[in-house]
Every structure is written in structure tokens, then in C-alpha cells.
């Protein structure tokens, strides 16, 4: 039992963080708690520190909005936090859609969908095109375009207020990941994750690989949602997983039975 908990320590921690954040938002709205008020596009922490989603703010700027100081400061606070420390950790430690897609991909493994499923080929880089396109669209239509369809917004507002037909999109993402494309939404499409990848590309916390301990079992590659970040290192050399799309979820560390992976602190200047 204990060893099972230990084996899933990051997974459990991540769920605790994700659910705590949602609970704080929920409590703020339902009971007037003042810890974390708002939602993942903008919130106020301890009634003082503004937090804003950098991609949302970029879109607003592209749309030509005159945004308040709080919002700009909030976006900078978030960008600095993930840029310096967390990397793309938002995706696996905060984002509620991660729980949906993790469930879908866990089921996908359990049901062995990949054995029979048709392969679909899209580039992992599609998300960066989505990011750019949405900024252009925001400029053209004069509104933060992605915020009209952002499943993260649907999810959190759904929890606090009402979800309307928003659940259909969340279900669609679940089915997409389960049946169509493995790690499809977060790994290929979501422009929010793409933004955090870029922001966090130089962050300090990274997974480090020790080649000497590695037995080439492939467990990490099996479970990693962004396998391409492991490829340059695993089976090849010791070093940091520097791929910017690593979400620091720590799943690879947990499934490694040979103690060949761990969280570590990367030097800021050199990239390994």
C-alpha cells in the first residue's frame, strides 16, 4: 500500500494541487473564501497578488483591448513563475483538462486502443500554429478568440456557475484522446499548453536522466504524454530532459524501476 502511494507520489500530489485550486475557486464563489478568487484566466491570490493567463492576455492585446494594470502584472507574475521555476507545469499540475485527458489516456492504455486504432498523423507542432493563428484571429475579430471555445474556461466556469452545453466539448476532448489521437488534445492542439511550453523553455526544474542506471525498459516512453522530449536522452546519454514540451508531470520518474530519472535543477544558462 505504502509503496503504491510512493510509486504514484507525483500523480497524487498533482491531483491534490489541481483539486485544491478548483476547490479554492469554488469556495471563493460559493462561500466567499478570499484565498484564490476568480478562475484560470484571471484570479486574485490572497486579495493582493494578481494572476493572469498569459495566452489570454496576449489575445486581448492582439484584439486591441486596453487592459488594466492588474491584468498585465498578473500575466507577468505567471510568466515569471513558470519561466523561472515550473516550466510547463501548468499543464500537468494545474489545468483541470489534464484530469480529463489523463483519464482518457489511461483508459486508452487499459483498453489497448493503440493495438488496433488507425494511425493519424499530425505534427506535434500544430499547437504552435494554433497559437499564432488564434492571435491573428483575435486581431481580426477584435476579441480574445480562443476564450470563446477554451475548454479550461468551460470547465472552471462550469464548476462555479453553469456549464451549459460546454460539457460536450469536454466530452469530445475525452473521446478524441481516447479513440482518435493518443495525448491528442494536450500534445498536439492546445494553444495554452503551447504558450506555457514557450514560456517555460528555460525553467530551472527539469527531469534528469541517469544513463548508467537505465535498463532500456521503455516504461518512461510508454507513459510520457510528450514522448518526443525523452527521445534525445533516453537510451542515449545522461542529462536533462530539455524538450520544452515536458510538463514536469513526473510520470516517467514514477514508472522508472531503476532509479534512472529524478527531478533536478538545471543551470539557467547552460542548457544541460
Amino acid at each position: 500500500m505504502m509503496s503504491k502511494l510512493l510509486k504514484n507520489r507525483y500523480l497524487i500530489l498533482r491531483r491534490i494541487v489541481q483539486i485544491t485550486i478548483l476547490a479554492l475557486y469554488f469556495g471563493a464563489n460559493a462561500y466567499g473564501w478570499k484565498v484564490l478568487v476568480g478562475n484560470l484566466s484571471y484570479s486574485k491570490f490572497l486579495q493582493a497578488i494578481p494572476l493572469a493567463d498569459p495566452f489570454t492576455v496576449l489575445q486581448m492585446l492582439a484584439a486591441g483591448a486596453v487592459v488594466g494594470v492588474d491584468v498585465l502584472v498578473g500575466a507577468v507574475v505567471i510568466a515569471v513563475f513558470y519561466g523561472l521555476i515550473g516550466g510547463r507545469a501548468f499543464c500537468s499540475w494545474v489545468c483541470p483538462i489534464n484530469m480529463v485527458t489523463d483519464l482518457a489516456n489511461w483508459l486508452r492504455r487499459k483498453l489497448k486502443i493503440d493495438r488496433d486504432a488507425r494511425r493519424i498523423n499530425i505534427s506535434r507542432r500544430f499547437r504552435y500554429w494554433a497559437l499564432g493563428t488564434l492571435l491573428v484571429v483575435s486581431f481580426v475579430v477584435g476579441a480574445a478568440a480562443y476564450e470563446f471555445v477554451n475548454p479550461i474556461g468551460f470547465f472552471v466556469r462550469g464548476l462555479l456557475f453553469s456549464i451549459g452545453f460546454g460539457w460536450t466539448l469536454i466530452l469530445a476532448i475525452f473521446l478524441f484522446d481516447l479513440l482518435i489521437l493518443k495525448h491528442g488534445w494536450c500534445g498536439y492542439i492546445c494553444p495554452v499548453g503551447a504558450t506555457y511550453s514557450l514560456i517555460g523553455s528555460k525553467s530551472l526544474i527539469r527531469v534528469e536522466h541517469n544513463h548508467l542506471n537505465c535498463t532500456n525498459c521503455g516504461n518512461c516512453k510508454e507513459v510520457c504524454p510528450e514522448k518526443q522530449v525523452l527521445n534525445p536522452v533516453i537510451y542515449r546519454k545522461s542529462g536533462f530532459i530539455n524538450g520544452i514540451e515536458c510538463t514536469n508531470c513526473g510520470r516517467c520518474i514514477e514508472v522508472c524501476n531503476d532509479n534512472a530519472l529524478k527531478f533536478s535543477i538545471r543551470s539557467f544558462l547552460k542548457n544541460n
Binding site: 476568480g38 478562475n39 484566466s41 486574485k44 486591441g64 483591448a65 487592459v67 476579441a143 474556461g153 456557475f161
Partner: peptide, 9 residues
């Protein structure tokens, strides 16, 4: 529409 960040505050 441009300015609201949809935070729900």
C-alpha cells in the same frame, strides 16, 4: 467583449 477576461470576479 475585448476587455473582459471572463474571470467572474
Amino acid at each position: 467583449i475585448k476587455t473582459c477576461i471572463r474571470c467572474g470576479l
